[in-house]
């Protein structure tokens, strides 16, 4: 199952950056990315679908070469409104449901 064509979020906002020099082509990013953002060819990773990135941060956290950077966070309006009110980091106080989504 993939998201399908109707479920795409805003284009050209994701903060994901790949340092191609540092990349060793290990393929961990391909493995952990839940939205198939990466591809490996010629022993280097490439970002083939930047707009699918939800900035979860799994790739950068698991990159042994530290070749990936992303401002990871929750894509949750309530969390961002909360942080505007409290001045703290975006936090939605989530924890329910069947483990595939947050904040409800």
């Amino acid at each position: 199952m993939s998201l399908g064509p109707g479920l795409r979020y805003l284009p050209a906002v994701a903060s994901l950056k790949l340092d191609i020099e540092a990349c060793t082509g290990c393929g961990t990013c391909v493995e952990v990315c839940p939205h198939a953002v990466f591809d490996i060819s010629d022993r280097k990773a490439s970002i083939k679908d930047l707009d699918a990135c939800m900035e979860c941060g799994a790739c950068s956290r698991n990159c042994p070469a530290r070749a990936l950077a992303v401002s990871a966070g929750v894509g949750c309006a309530q969390a961002i409104f909360n942080s505007m009110l409290t001045g703290g980091p975006p936090d939605c106080g989530c924890g329910s449901d069947q483990g595939s989504s947050c904040c409800s």
Partner: peptide, 19 residues
């Protein structure tokens, strides 16, 4: 807009942009 929190594909920078 609040449903972004329950969805599985919205990014924080995207939601920031919307807000």
């Amino acid at each position: 807009l609040n449903f972004t929190g329950a969805s599985t594909f919205t990014s924080q920078n995207g939601v920031n942009r919307e807000i």
